[in-house]
Simulated scan of single mutants.
Amino acid sequence: MSSPSTPPSADPARPPARGRPPRLDQTRTVEAALVLLDESGLDALTMRRLADAVGVQAGALYRHFATKQDLLTALAERMLAGCSAPPADPDWSGRLTALARRMRTALLAHRDGARVYAGTHSTGANTLGFAETLIGVLSEAGFGPREAARTALTVVHYTVGHTLEEQAALQPGDQGPADPEQLREAVTAAGLPHLTAALPVLTSADFTAQFEFGLGLLVQGLRALHRAGSGPAA
């Protein structure tokens, strides 16, 4: 019978857990990496800093992430959580643009999100689910598998590329923000009439308008091909 001072589950012969390193959990580690990313940016996200944040030795991280690229792939996968649900828009082009907007929003939600995502090749449920939904929208609209895949890649590349430029311009660091007045002075001094006329757009910080314009061009081209019944391969 246990004494009142000893819990029934306690084992007096077992050494106390105090001082033991915490068990490394992959999900918790990815969440901690996202916090560090948002605080300091991608360049400052090192395996050593992440290990300190989760309270383990740096070498312990390599049981889950053999390289930093593996960590970035896990972060990219986490960023796309919630992006794969089929949009409710009845029109295929509306569903396509909704998915592109979702991806941009997901990448913008984290500092250097587009830089993290670029070049990763996750095979996780979030990434594959998003790709399945995107290609599915195009397939259901009548595009063949090859054309649907190429179109999906085009949409993703446009979204990631635009968001890379957007985050580079808006976030603090060595690359930005850009000085619109410097561009204006250089164009005026060079006497370039076409660039001078375009300056209101070139110096604008309305990145949503820029993104929507480019996305609209993609969709218009796809609609034209769809109406012609030729598909992108033709």
Rank of each mutant, 00 (worst) to 15 (best):
R48F: 10
D112G: 09
V187G: 02
D112T: 09
H157T: 06
H226S: 14
E181K: 08
S9T: 15
S40G: 13
M47S: 14
E166M: 05
A109C: 11
G113N: 12
E212V: 12
S230N: 00
Q171V: 03
A141K: 03
L170A: 08
V155A: 02
M47F: 13
E166W: 00
H157K: 04
T67R: 10
Q175Y: 12
G124P: 10
L192H: 08
T67P: 02
A168R: 06
T29M: 04
T188F: 00
D112N: 13
L107E: 12
H162G: 08
T151W: 04
F207Y: 15
G55I: 03
L37K: 00
L80W: 08
D11Y: 03
V56N: 10
A98D: 09
G142Q: 02
L195F: 02
R184A: 13
A190Q: 01
Q220I: 08
E165F: 06
L72M: 09
P4V: 05
A197V: 07
T46S: 15
T208R: 15
G214L: 09
G191R: 00
S5M: 12
P145E: 01
T127N: 09
A32Y: 05
A118V: 14
Q69H: 06
T73N: 08
P200D: 02
V160E: 05
T159A: 02
T154P: 02
A13S: 13
R227N: 11
V54A: 04
A10V: 09
R111V: 07
D112F: 10
G113V: 10
D206M: 09
A190S: 09
T105I: 09
P87K: 06
A58R: 15
L36M: 11
R18I: 12
V187C: 03
R101Y: 07
A10Q: 13
P22F: 06
A149K: 00
S40I: 05
Y117M: 15
A152I: 00
R115K: 15
S2H: 14
H110G: 10
R102V: 07
A169K: 01
T133C: 15
T154H: 04
A189E: 05
Q57G: 11
T46R: 14
A74H: 06
Y158G: 05
T151H: 10
Q26A: 15
R95Y: 08
G216L: 15
P15W: 04
S93L: 13
L42G: 11
A74Q: 05
R48Y: 11
V160A: 02
Q220A: 15
G216C: 14
S139D: 11
L61N: 01
V155H: 01
G144M: 00
F213Q: 08
A100M: 13
A33P: 05
Q26F: 07
A205K: 15
G124D: 11
F65V: 05
V156E: 01
H121D: 13
H194N: 12
G124K: 11
Q69S: 07
S204V: 07
S40Y: 07
